[in-house]
Amino acid sequence: MTNGDASDNGVEDIIIARDVHKWFGSFHALRGVSTTVKRAEKVVILGPSGSGKSTFIRTINRLEEHQRGEIIVDGITLSNDVRNIDAIRREVGMVFQQFNLFPHLTVKDNITLAPMKVRHIPRAEAEDTAMGLLERVGIPEQAEKYPAELSGGQQQRVAIARALAMQPRIMLFDEPTSALDPEMIKDVLDVMTELAQSGMTMLIVTHEVGFAREVADRVIMFDEGMIAEEAPPNEFFINPKSDRAKLFLSQILH
């Protein structure tokens, strides 16, 4: 594991979650989740559907509000202080299962929108950055097209570029390949692998076991709103400790 460069905030533990609880009405979705993510660490989150894994990473950038416990991102405590929320969202990029590209904007405008509106970066510079990112994800020729003209795999790579344009320190991936046709999954995973090698801190909710084995520093398994098991991938996949993890692995590894 590399430690990356010294950050502005000088925090080694870039994400700290302590006893995080979340209710949807009466449904207790997160039941005391505690974990720490180190700078440049790659964490893959597994678990059956409804286990709270997506909810957990969505609390990290306040797409879901946690009701109890504490979340600290790069030294900033996530609270109701709007300034803290804005600061954390600038640090944290997110990629969604359904891509969520803006359909009324071209690929390039999708990527430049936030840097120009939020960081007030001049258009020419933002467009240069956007083109650089499109090169990086391998689809510079699609810059002037609209999202609906692209394949799912291309759209997801644009979504990654869009998140990277804000120069985040942390990237959250919420089942990034679950909505893709099988032949497109590899393109997206390749981009994510490259990103992992560049030293980005990544939290990835995924069912791609091969990817988890290759890229993850640590695997966290969620079950019923709690962390059921937390271990390096080799240990987790070959020799899981909890019965819950054994059962889950027997279901997804055929």
Binding site: N61, R62, L63, D86, R89, R90, V92, G93, M94, F96, Q98, N100, L101, F102, L113, A114, K117, V118, R119, A159, R162, A163, A165, M166
Partner: peptide, 21 residues
């Protein structure tokens, strides 16, 4: 869709910016 708002918030736009852009 709700996902549009979430994506816009996640890239750092503020609520008024989300509505406008």
């Amino acid at each position: 869709s709700r996902g549009q708002t979430e994506a816009a918030l996640a890239v750092g736009l503020k609520p008024v910016g989300v509505l406008r852009n």
